[in-house]
Amino acid sequence: MTSTIGLYVPGSSVLHRLPAGTKLLAMVAVGVLSVFLDRPWQVAAALAAVLAGYPVAGLPVRVALGQLRPLVWILGFTAVFHVVVNGWERAGVVVGVLAALVLLASLVTLTTRTTDLVDAVVTGCRPLRVLRVDPERIGLLIALGIRCVPVVAGLAEEVRDAQLARGLGASPRAFAVPLIVRSLRHADALGEALTARGLDD
């Protein structure tokens, strides 16, 4: 099910085969190091390197541009601000680094299975045992959350149909209240099912 709603694009490239943990650590490392990029040629090189990752992963460059589309407005605003305050060079560096980091993070998402990332999260939570947090419980919670998304989306559809049938139009209250009450009843059943399976023991 996760493969149908996730952003992962299946493939067999080098980037697909790298372990999820390695990719996440590399991404964090690049994020930290990006603070030290302050020359336009360095930023151009970083941007080119990240963009080159898309064809390596078998993804068209069109996909890379799609990752930046939601950011056009804020990137434009940032560029204008820095051109006015700090000049062209600084504007290019800031916007370039920002775009490179978003493209890199998206590349990790596109080439890593959701299940592998969940496992990496659970592994990464192991040190939290010191705080008496059970990583397996976190894994269970993530699995429950993934399951609840389509369940509640289904409830939302039913509620919307009922709302239209009764001619209530687009009232947010007439939609959200029954949706949440139904969801809470679903949570009751889910909680009882978990208790029945010995989760509170």
Binding site: R137, L140, L141, L144, G145, R147, C148, L184, A187, D188, L190, G191, E192, L194, T195, L199, D200
Partner: peptide
């Protein structure tokens, strides 16, 4: 269990 169910 109820908390986990409500959270999810």
């Amino acid at each position: 269990s109820r908390d986990l169910a409500l959270i999810a």
